[in-house]
Design a protein around this nucleic acid. Structure first.
Lengths: 169, 169
DNA sequence: TTGGAATGTCAACAAGGCTGACATAAACTA
DNA sequence: TAGTTTATGTCAGCCTTGTTGACATTCCAA
C-alpha cells in the first residue's frame, strides 16, 4: 500500500527523515489541529458546549446504540468525564439512553432528532474545512495524509479506527 | 505543487471528496493526534508539567530570544495563560527572561541548559513517533501529509507556520 | 446465591483555557 | 514635557474537561 521509491543516489531516499523534516511535520500537526477544531468550536460555544460534547455526539452518531463502555474506549477518557458530558446531553434532549435489551446493565446510546441536527451542523463545518484542504492538496496527497496519520496512531487505537473506518455511517 | 490527476471517467476524480472519505479523514486526525501527544505527555507527567509547558519550550527553542507577544501569537492563548506556564518554567530554571535591548519593555525568552535538556527529551520522543510513521508511509505519503495539513490551517497561522518552517532550528 | 461486571453518582482536585481589572515601566507622540 | 499607547506581569474568579477514590445499584453467570 505504502509506495516506497528507491533513491538513485543512495539506494533509498531518507531525506524526508531528517530531524528538520520531522520538526516541520510536528509543527504542521500542531497548527493544523487548531484549524481542524476551530469551526466546530465556534458552533459549540453558541450552544454552551465544549469539544467533549462534540466527540460524544460524533461517535454516538457513528455507532448507533453503542454502549457507554464502548464509547469510553473510543474516546480514551474516564467514565466520570464521559458521564458528565452524557448527562448534560441527555438532560438537554440531544441523546437518548435506553436500557440494553440483552444485557440490561448496559445503556444503548442514540441521538434524538435534535441531537442529529447539532451533530450534522458540527460535522458539516468540520467537513467543509477538510473538503477544502483535500481539494487544494489533491487525491494523491490525501492518500499520503491518511497513510501517515494511520501510522501515527497507537496500535490499539488503530484497530478501533480500522473497524470503524469501514462501516457505513 | 499539488498534483491533480484527471479522471478518465468524469474528467476529474472527486471520489476522495465524498462525505465518507472526509469523515475517515476527520476520525484519522482525531486518533492520530492522540498518538502524536502521547509520548511527550508521559515525560511531562514525570516532571509535573503539561502540554502547555511543552508548547512553550518548543517554540522558545525554535525562536531563541522571542518576545512574549510573539509567543502568544504562535500559541494562540491569552497572556494570562501563557504567563502562568512561563512563571513556573522560569522559577524552575528552564527558561530565562531577559529585558529587551532595543525595547526594554519587551522580554526576550531563552532556554537554559536544563530547559534545552527537557526540550530535547520531549522533542526526541515526538520525533521518534513521527519518524516511525514517516518511514512506514514513505516519502511520497509524507509530502501529501504535509500538503493537506498546511491547507487545513487558518490563513493567519499558515503564514506564521511558513515563516517558521524555513528557519534553522 | 454470591461474586464480579457494567453503570451511575458524589466529592474533590488539577491543568489550562478564559475575562476583567489593575500596576508598572518604557516608548511614542502631540 | 505631558499624555497616551504598548508590553508585560499579576490577581481574582470562572469554566471545561481531565483525573482519582469511594460507594451504590443492578443484574448476569458460575
Amino acid at each position: 500500500m505504502a509506495e516506497r521509491r528507491p533513491n538513485p543516489i543512495s539506494g533509498e531516499n531518507l531525506l524526508f527523515l531528517t530531524d528538520e523534516q520531522l520538526r516541520k511535520g510536528i509543527e504542521a500537526m500542531f497548527f493544523a489541529y487548531r484549524g481542524f477544531t476551530a469551526d466546530p468550536d465556534r458552533i459549540l460555544e453558541q450552544h454552551g458546549y465544549g469539544r467533549a460534547h462534540h466527540r460524544a455526539l460524533h461517535f454516538i452518531n457513528r455507532t448507533h446504540g453503542t454502549t457507554v463502555n464502548n464509547l469510553l474506549a473510543l474516546l480514551g477518557v474516564t467514565k466520570q468525564s464521559l458521564n458528565r458530558v452524557l448527562r448534560t446531553l441527555i438532560a438537554d434532549g440531544l441523546v437518548e439512553s435506553r436500557v440494553g435489551r440483552t444485557d440490561r446493565r448496559e445503556r444503548n446510546l442514540f441521538l434524538t432528532e435534535e441531537g442529529r441536527k447539532l451533530e450534522r451542523a458540527l460535522s458539516e463545518a468540520q467537513r467543509e474545512r477538510m473538503r477544502s484542504a483535500y481539494r487544494a492538496a489533491g487525491p494523491q496527497a490525501v492518500a499520503g495524509f491518511r497513510q501517515v496519520l494511520e501510522a501515527m496512531m497507537d496500535d490499539e487505537i488503530r484497530h478501533q479506527y480500522a473497524s470503524l473506518r469501514d462501516r457505513r455511517s
